[in-house]
Computed example of a mutant assay.
Amino acid sequence: MSTTASLDTPRLSLEAGAEGASHLTLRNDSDVVEEYALRVVGPAEPWAEILPDRVSLYPGQDTTATVTFKPSRSASIPAGDFIFGIHVLPTEHPEDAVLPEGVVEVLPFLETTGELMPRMSRGKRGAKHHVALDNWGNVPVTVDLAGSDPGDLLEFELEPPELTIEPGTVQFTAVRVRPAEKIWSGTPATRMFAVTATPEDGPPVLLDGSHVQDPVLPWRTIKAVLFLLFLATALTVAWHLSVESVRLSEPTKPVAPQGAALNVLPYGIQ
Rank of each mutant, 00 (worst) to 15 (best):
A5M: 12
E19M: 07
E19P: 07
A21N: 02
H23A: 09
L24C: 10
T25W: 12
T25M: 12
L26G: 08
L26Q: 06
N28I: 02
N28S: 05
S30N: 03
D31E: 12
G42H: 04
G42E: 10
A44F: 07
A44W: 04
A48V: 02
L51E: 14
Y58A: 12
G60K: 01
T63V: 11
A65T: 02
T68M: 02
T68C: 03
F69T: 10
F69C: 07
F69E: 08
K70G: 03
K70F: 03
P71T: 12
S74P: 01
S76M: 05
S76N: 06
I77F: 05
P78L: 14
P78T: 12
A79C: 08
G80L: 09
D81W: 08
I86M: 04
V88L: 07
V88H: 09
L89E: 10
E95R: 15
E101P: 00
E101V: 00
V103W: 09
V103A: 12
E105V: 15
L107H: 06
E111C: 02
T112K: 08
T113R: 15
M117N: 11
P118F: 01
S121T: 14
R122K: 03
K128S: 04
H130G: 06
A132R: 02
L133V: 05
L133N: 00
N135I: 06
G137T: 14
G137I: 13
N138P: 01
V139M: 02
T142V: 01
D144Y: 10
D149H: 09
G151M: 09
E155G: 13
L158D: 00
L158I: 09
P160Q: 00
E162V: 14
I165R: 01
T169C: 01
R176Y: 08
P179H: 07
E181S: 14
G186D: 09
A189L: 10
A189P: 01
M192E: 13
M192W: 05
F193L: 04
F193R: 11
A194P: 05
V195I: 15
A197R: 12
T198S: 07
P199V: 06
V205W: 04
V205E: 12
L206T: 14
H211C: 04
V216E: 15
L217K: 08
L217T: 01
I222W: 11
K223L: 13
T236L: 04
L241W: 05
S242G: 03
S245A: 15
E250Y: 09
V255D: 06
P257N: 08
Q258N: 03
G259S: 03
G259K: 00
L262I: 11
Q270F: 04
